[in-house]
Design a protein around this nucleic acid. Sequence first.
DNA 1: GCCAACGTTGGC
DNA 2: GCCAACGTTGGC
Length: 154
Amino acid sequence: MNHWLMKSEPATFSIDALAALPKKTTAWDGVRNYQARNMLRDSMKQGDLAFFYHSSCELPGIAGIVRIVRSGYPDATALDAKHDHYDPASTPADPRWYVVDVKLETRFKRIITLDVLREHAADALADLILLRRGNRLSVMPVTKAQWDFILTLE
DNA sequence: GCCAACGTTGGC
DNA sequence: GCCAACGTTGGC
């Protein structure tokens, strides 16, 4: 089983919004970056766990954990001309963008803030992609060691 | 709102 | 295939 971190702007889709859904499950759509797409399409497997990260907000940080409940399949929002995330270059025969389905596993009582994560940037989290300068990747792998360490910060 | 960093686009 | 211009991300 692999571990991941997935970013979302809470103003667009927050962990509370996920918790409010009937089955606490949704397609993680709208990713339009090839590196992230490749992970959604090729690497994320049913049963994997991912941190749900809130970005571009008052308190950036990890808000909880989701489980991947369906591996990669084409992003329908890219095929819908009326949708904000429509991409005319993506077609049903040759889909360009992918989603996975995620289900809420745990909502942390308190966010593990970016500040707290940064406190360990010199040691346990030295290689965490999230903390790399200029990092913009919205879906990224997390090692088991990083995952376990971050859980101790909750 | 600012700005650094980075990915993408398009002219050549 | 290069690279400047542009758009986006995301923290502050």
